[in-house]
Computed example of a mutant assay.
Amino acid sequence: MLDFLKPRWRSLAELIGFVTILFGTKALVDPLTWQFSGPISMIFTLIVLGIYLRLQNEQWSELGLRPLFGWKAKLLLLPQAIVGMAGIIGFSAMLLLLAQHMGWTDFMEASGVGAERWGDLKGNLGLYLLWLLVVWTSAAFGEEIFFRGFFISRAQRLFDGVPHKWILSALFAAVTFGYAHYYYQGLRGFVVTGIVAFWLGLLYFAYKRNLWPLILAHGFVDSLMFTAHFMDWDI
């Protein structure tokens, strides 16, 4: 499939195709269940991507889901994840503090749609556990595979020959990731998630394309957020 295209144009076609599948599926599912249309579209896109990779004789490990061989790789997993978590929390906090200092009130106001999407989590154990399931499947696992593993690897081929293509690839993926969160988090969500995605993209290269620390960091931070809503913590 697409073997007749040069690597750069083939990568562009793959990016356009799978981003279209992701956002197109979400648009189709929205009228049925807008709260879960994002996770559903992410899982569906990964299924299609898995079939495509199989037809291309490409393995998930080539995108970053590789076995952790040796004790060193296993011991580094948690510290690497903690670095990822620190960046996610730190950059988000610094950005919001900067917006507050500069008086960007419109930016400071998160979209109310986000709260509506998650429902009344306070004290609702069933809903809390449901969203944790979504966090670790669609968000942590799915988004890291798609936006870091697949998207960045294809973007690198697209920018082949361009100076600092690895930075451009991470930035391209980050902008797309931020846009994917705009519909329910607004401008604040677009900027914050975009910066977080850029940080994770840089770590993807720093960790030699190992996705496992990023999956853990993403999952732990999102789990903390939903736990805060469930416990009604003021953070």
Rank of each mutant, 00 (worst) to 15 (best):
I43A: 13
V134M: 12
S169T: 10
A155R: 02
G114Q: 13
P39C: 05
S61Y: 09
K72P: 06
R148V: 01
D30Y: 10
A139L: 09
A155K: 03
F230S: 09
M102E: 10
L171W: 08
S111G: 08
L2Y: 13
S169W: 03
T25I: 11
D232M: 06
W233C: 12
P7D: 02
A197H: 03
E116W: 03
Q80D: 14
A73L: 13
I21G: 07
H181K: 07
H164L: 12
L28G: 04
F44C: 09
G50L: 13
V175K: 08
Q59A: 13
L22R: 01
G38P: 03
V83C: 14
L132S: 08
T137L: 12
A174K: 01
K122W: 07
L158N: 01
K74Q: 15
N124T: 07
I21L: 15
I43C: 06
P7G: 11
F18Y: 14
L158I: 08
G64W: 00
L22H: 03
R10P: 06
I152F: 04
R209F: 04
L65C: 04
F23W: 14
F147N: 07
H181Q: 10
F146K: 02
W199Q: 00
G90S: 07
A73W: 09
I195K: 00
G189E: 05
G24R: 06
F107P: 02
D234E: 15
T176G: 15
A197Y: 02
L121T: 06
W131K: 08
M102S: 11
T193G: 06
W233H: 13
D232P: 11
Y183H: 12
G149W: 01
T105G: 04
D120F: 13
I21R: 03
L216N: 04
L127Y: 10
S41H: 05
P31H: 07
S61A: 14
E62D: 14
T20N: 06
F107E: 03
L96G: 00
P213K: 01
L202E: 06
L95A: 02
I89K: 03
L76T: 06
A115V: 13
W166E: 15
T137R: 07
F220S: 10
A110S: 11
R8P: 13
G149V: 00
L98F: 09
